[in-house]
Nucleic acid binder design. Structure first.
Lengths: 343, 343
DNA sequence: ACCAGGAATTAAAGCGCTTTAAATTGTCCT
DNA sequence: AGGACAATTTAAAGCGCTTTAATTCCTGGT
């Protein structure tokens, strides 16, 4: 009993200082302190200085949960990312800067094996994000639209049918088309595509491949290998090609991770890239830029996407826009080492 | 004027439901609803069901900021990570599971170019993290110790002198020693080390290299190349070696990222690994496992570290431990493709 | 000396939830 | 029927901050 009491007292003694403590020390009201600390105009210079000093002396640090609760606004944007994606990592960084510029803060929630999309989004909402920026969400449109009722939803990187939600994305089919065009220009005809699974993004890119192949009259060479968004899938695809014994002259993968898997699979079998086979990815993520891969890929303009996404959120939040808007950016080819003319 | 009023009314109308709304709908008090929603024993089964139903109907979602504010506890652990480090990404994932198991939640804060360690930690504190788990912090001990006054600090992966703080780490010098031992056993004598900069971790690993070399009587071959924790540094080091024209038979790098840079630099110059030069890294991070690298490295046991870190936090928070404790795990060699006997 | 008007300051009412102590209800004996 | 006791339920007091409306304090002009 004694002990518990003592402990409690000790704990109370070293409790973090509150606004009230700072106010008491200076001899002003908590209102004034609050104003000074947030840099709101009003308090006199003298008060300002004294408050600042007292706050520093006490080691005062604002309690964000209380601020958020008290102010109707939170100025926080919730971002859902897939922690495994290097491309998302890039995006997050740009989102950070973009948000900072307009005075917003980011709260991240990441999906892992144990936390699915729904949980991730709920956390964001529970923390009072004012808008949700979802990077490549896989949930059905209805679900996303329902979410939009609770907070403006900005979907990044994925197509959504007909003006239901704010979307920022690149024209994925066009991007893949550009790769195919370039490969064809280099003289390739046997161009195989490694698929990215059943998401909307994957569908678009696959379509881009098919369309481009047809445009060049290469219908007969259209070949799509099952896959997903991981290195493992790329490697499997490569093994599959090798086992089949008839390597195409070029392989285009759903994304960079998959492409890197393809690269690995080929390397292991001693197939030279781009000597024997050309390989291209999609996203221009960190990994693709590593000099050991130096992968030819398509840039989605991560920075621009981040900027537009934040801008969209701000428009909804601060400028009263209510109609959904879609921003489609043009992807552009980033030619690096992994493609060349056919063998 | 009219418009603004109207808009405000509309906004108010679709405001998210509060505990009170759920309570009103069922005809009980907010207290009961709170209890039910948190799964606390007390409310009858009948009440329980009705509350759950009402909450679902209304689409109620708890406002975390309010909960946190109201409960003295937050059950949140603040984690500071470097978003660029694949090893940290691994750790975070394990931390997530470990925390979840003991009923804690994680709030992440990442340093980027624009956000330094201090800011990151302040955010964590502002969100009322009860303890801080710092992954490889670079701040001086004093700063960290000061922090410990505000919330228990658990330092992960870095040595801290003499019982000032909770620390979970692996014996880095030993780890590097193991690599050197293995290389020597394979017959290597000219083993060069690519340094990791001036942090404490780097110091330990460098020492491990030096000590091991001396132990094998290879003092004359000790050679440390300047570097840091990036791929770029590794690549620079490789170029340096190549320019000097006298390649060692083995290169040990500060971490996997740096080692991958070395690999890239050597590959570009057409030097075969492990044929002509053996290369080893440290951390056993994601990248090192990619089959295209298949890098020999040292595992720090990310999962175990995460587990111990969370355990340490819980002990401080819930079990009243106050003396700092250090957990030093034994690293273990992960032999993959990149080392072999000397040429 | 007095007052209008602006500048600085503050009292007080929440924000949406948790939690404690007290009130209410129900059950089972005697 | 009356009462003891346990099972439920709830009123009300915060949590630490923001914000609005009101108050106080200064000016300078008359």
């Amino acid at each position: 009993m004694e002990d518990v009491g003592a402990e409690r007292r000790r704990a109370a003694a070293k409790k973090r200082p509150r606004l009230e403590d700072v106010a008491a020390r200076v001899g002003v009201s908590t209102a004034s302190v609050s104003l000074v600390l947030r840099g709101v105009a009003g308090p006199s210079e003298r008060t300002r200085q004294r408050v600042l000093k007292a706050a520093a002396d006490l080691g005062y640090q604002v309690d964000r949960t209380a601020s958020l609760l008290a102010s109707r606004r939170t100025r926080m944007l919730g971002v859902m990312v897939d922690v495994h994606s290097p491309f998302h990592a890039d995006l997050v960084e740009y989102l950070h800067s973009a948000a900072e510029e307009v005075g917003y803060d980011l709260v991240l929630s990441t999906q892992t094996r144990t936390r699915d999309e729904r949980t991730a989004v709920e956390t964001l909402l529970a923390f009072r994000s004012e808008a949700l920026i979802l990077l490549g969400p896989t949930a059905p449109v209805d679900t996303l639209a329902a979410l939009d009722g609770k907070a403006p939803v900005i979907v990044v990187g994925r197509r959504i049918e007909e003006g239901q939600l704010d979307v920022v994305r690149t024209a994925d089919d066009d991007g893949v088309g550009q790769i195919v065009d370039r490969l064809v220009a280099l003289g390739h005809r046997e161009i195989t595509y490694v698929d990215g699974g059943k998401g909307v993004i994957a569908t678009d890119r696959r379509r881009g491949y098919r369309t481009a192949m047809r445009r060049h009259g290469l219908d007969a060479h259209i070949k799509v290998l099952r896959g997903d968004n991981t290195e493992a899938a790329g490697e499997r695809a490569a093994r599959h090609l090798l086992d089949a014994g008839e390597l195409p002259t070029a392989v285009v993968a759903f994304n960079d991770q998959s492409a890197i898997g393809v690269l690995a699979g080929l390397a292991r079998a001693g197939v030279s890239v781009p000597g024997e086979v050309s390989v291209a990815g999609y996203d221009d993520d960190r990994l693709s830029r590593l000099s050991c891969f130096d992968l030819t890929t398509v840039s989605q303009g991560a920075e621009a996407q981040a900027r537009y996404a934040v801008a969209a959120a701000v428009e909804r939040l601060d400028e009263g826009r209510t109609e959904p808007r879609e921003v489609v950016l043009a992807p552009h080819l980033v030619v690096r080492r992994t493609i060349a003319g056919p063998r």
